[in-house]
């Protein structure tokens, strides 16, 4: 049987899920955080590309749940549940939350990277999902790809090359 592996691409402020042998990927993470939730035995994973820490920051009438750490992680858990995943089996790996530019401004939005990371960790704790590995902070952009077969998160940066966590 011929099986061709697909790469599911997730854009900024979007989420999706993937089943083995396919992989899931998001590119150009700066201050955003890529959150991967996965079930090792079922080999299913989900990825959300979070832009902002908290949906209370949103001032729009229609809410894009994938944009925020709190609503994005909740929506991803629900999507995985609908695929038959037991939430207690879920584990997490995260990457991103960099500070791309150093500014001397008092605006809180300039610290958005670290705030996104904090918010994501808080949500994971709330749902009792163990954070297995992370590559966060710093000042480099990241492209990440998760393979549900191996549970490895591949991370590519411009200056530090490629690594798996």
């Amino acid at each position: 049987m011929i099986s061709s592996k697909q790469v599911v691409k997730v854009g900024i402020a979007q989420l999706d899920i993937v089943k083995s042998p396919d992989t899931i990927r998001t590119s150009g993470l700066g201050s955003c955080v890529g959150v991967v939730l996965y079930d090792e035995t079922k080999r299913i994973a989900g990825l959300v590309h979070v832009m902002l820490p908290d949906s209370s920051l949103g001032k729009t009438s229609t809410l894009n749940v994938a944009k925020f750490a709190d609503t994005g992680i909740e929506a991803l858990i629900n999507k995985l549940k609908s695929e038959g995943v037991q939430p207690f089996r879920l584990k997490a790996k995260i990457a991103g939350g960099a500070q791309m530019f150093q500014f001397t401004t008092d605006k809180d939005t300039m610290r958005i990277g670290p705030r996104n990371v904090e918010a994501v960790k808080l949500e994971l704790k709330k749902y009792g999902i163990p954070l297995v590995a992370e590559d966060t902070g710093g000042n480099s952009g990241r492209t990440i790809e998760f393979n549900p077969d191996t549970s490895k998160l591949n991370i590519r940066t411009v200056n530090q090359g490629v690594c798996d966590i």
């Binding site: 150009g28 700066g30 201050s31 001397t104 952009g141 411009v158």
Partner: peptide, 26 residues
Amino acid sequence: TVPGLAVDMFGAIISSGLVEISQVSD
């Protein structure tokens, strides 16, 4: 403001400028 400089992926750079906007719009 004094400009900041980065040599990096376009997406990572440009998303820094979307933070303010993303709070009110998609």
